[in-house]
């Protein structure tokens, strides 16, 4: 297990030295994934609530589709977004390929279904409990959906965190649409893939440890905020 201990030591050294290259990579990872999560939540939460509460034709099949889309392989999404943004593709003139923006787009496509599907389940459960009450108060369906979203916000934060976890951990999509360009679109996961390619397994694993720590810290922060909010607003 010499690789393991070497990796721990390397990870420690990189963190202590605050390697500027590493900081840039970490910052870009967070920026891309947090932006993607924010946009995906703006899309996914209303979609989830609408499908949970709405009574429109195709509601059931939409549920199945949303659940199914959670399993979309990142590399397929990467390929689709790549073909869309490539100069030869329909949006090629925007020149977005191999930019952080392209990576955000790919991650939004990847995690919106996850946030939508999970929040649909959460809101649907709450709807079962509160439908009569909300109806008797004369709430319209959109009003009811909004109320339920606010009411289940603590559970919904888990859905959003699931999306963040997926975004920050995936490599297939950002590798294709970002191109892993040094200093421009290189993020944590693509760096790990690159160092593995170079056969520098200890460094790759060290970056992996750092990525895991960051994800843990984000989750701890989210947890703390939630605890605080629960105490404050019940």
């Amino acid at each position: 297990m010499s690789t393991m201990s070497e990796s721990f030591a390397t990870a420690g050294r990189l963190i202590v030295a605050a390697d500027p290259n590493l900081l840039h990579i970490v910052a870009l990872s967070l920026q891309v994934s947090l932006t993607a999560v924010f946009l995906a939540a703006c899309l996914g939460l209303p979609i989830g609530a609408a499908v949970a509460v709405g009574r429109f034709p195709g509601c059931k099949s939409l549920t199945v589709i949303l659940n199914g889309l959670m399993g979309l392989p990142p590399v397929v999404i990467g390929l689709l977004v790549y073909l869309l943004l490539s100069r030869a593709g329909p949006l090629g003139s925007l020149g977005l390929l191999f930019t952080p923006t392209a990576m955000v787009i790919a991650q939004v496509v990847l995690i919106t279904p996850i946030i939508a599907a999970l929040s649909r389940q959460i809101v649907a459960d709450a709807w079962r409990d509160y439908e009569e009450q909300l109806r008797s108060l004369g709430a319209s369906t959109p009003r009811a959906a909004l109320t339920l979203l606010v009411d289940t916000r603590f559970s919904l934060s888990t859905a959003v965190l699931a999306g963040l976890g997926r975004a920050v951990a995936e490599v297939g999509a950002v590798m294709i649409v970002g191109g892993n360009i040094d200093g421009v679109t290189r993020v944590m996961t693509t760096s790990i893939a690159l160092e593995t390619s170079k056969g520098d397994l200890p460094l790759a694993l060290a970056l992996g440890f750092i990525l895991i720590s960051i994800v843990l810290i984000l989750n701890a922060l989210a947890h703390a905020v939630r605890e605080w909010a629960v105490r404050r607003h019940g």
Partner: peptide, 13 residues
């Protein structure tokens, strides 16, 4: 949250 994530400009070389 939006302001924090979106306003920080991507590091432009």
């Amino acid at each position: 949250a939006a302001a924090i994530t979106l306003a920080a400009p991507f590091v432009h070389a």
